[in-house]
């Protein structure tokens, strides 16, 4: 049974993606990511000297500041900050620059559904732009569950509110290995199978959740390709950005 989506997309179709790097001049790294009408700008400052009070000085420390489009920062923003911080901590190599702090500032430009995944993607690109060492990229997607049990990817805000449940999922990006097939197989398999972050809203059955996971993981291949293409083309376009 086909789901009719208001903008005519198929259930597995993502909204048009757009990504640009280096849009802010003062920050060490910046990126803008938009999925359809949802647009988020991420800026990275760092590494700066010194860690915050309770943090381990033997590792680099990350700090996330989430700025909503309007109004003051409340509990929702604090939750997003915590989720984003832990997600990015898992992809950064924290032992390379110990006793430093890297600040990531997220500014919501427009929220039309799928806000947290957009922010994760933007933050990831901004970190690459700033040259922070990463283990792998993180690609993020939102999967919705309709009442009939179908899984829909990348919902708009209206769709999110109407749906029974939705899940924000973050996966490591798919691997384009230059090594021949079979070598280091287990490690890459683990990476491909892994889930970095999951935040769900609304109740769903356990099987439905695993369907969402599968669909989401399948979509990450497309997102990873888009990311790779985007990052490569911009690197070729600019000279080295020293400092």
């Amino acid at each position: 049974m086909e789901i009719d989506r208001t903008d005519g997309r198929s259930p597995n179709q993502l909204r048009p993606l757009a990504c640009s790097r280096g849009i802010l001049h003062r920050s060490h790294g910046s990126a803008s990511w938009s999925q359809g009408d949802t647009r988020v700008i991420a800026a990275v400052y760092g590494p700066k000297a010194g860690t915050k009070k309770n943090e381990n000085p033997e590792r680099a420390c990350l700090e996330v500041i989430w700025k909503p489009k309007t109004g003051q920062s409340g509990k929702e923003e604090k939750e997003y900050e915590t989720i984003l911080k832990r997600t990015l901590q898992s992809i950064c190599i924290l032992t390379i620059n110990p006793n430093t702090t890297t600040s990531i500032i997220i500014q919501v430009v427009h929220d039309d559904g799928s806000l947290l995944p957009c922010a994760v993607n933007a933050a990831c690109v901004a970190l690459v732009d700033a040259g922070i060492p990463l283990k792998h990229l993180a690609v993020s997607i939102c999967c919705c569950l309709a009442t009939c049990g179908h899984v829909i990817l990348d919902p708009t805000k209206l769709e999110e509110e109407k749906m029974k449940a939705f899940a924000y999922l973050v996966f490591p990006n798919s691997i384009n290995s230059i090594l021949p097939e079979g070598s280091s197989h287990t490690k890459s398999k683990q990476l491909e199978d892994g889930l970095v972050t999951s935040v769900t809203h609304g109740g769903m059955s356990v099987e439905d959740y695993f369907h969402c996971l599968d669909r989401g993981r399948a979509a990450t291949a497309r997102l990873s390709d888009f990311l790779r293409k985007n990052l490569q083309s911009q690197v070729l376009g600019e000279g080295s950005k020293a400092g």
Partner: peptide, 28 residues
């Protein structure tokens, strides 16, 4: 989980260890 066995929320806010599908099933 709620009493009817439905998954109300699966919350994994990042972290260095990636969760495999088998891990998630064990947790559930």
């Amino acid at each position: 989980l709620n009493s009817s066995g439905h998954l109300v929320s699966l919350y994994k806010p990042g972290g260095p260890v990636l969760a495999q599908t088998s891990t998630i099933q064990d947790c559930i």
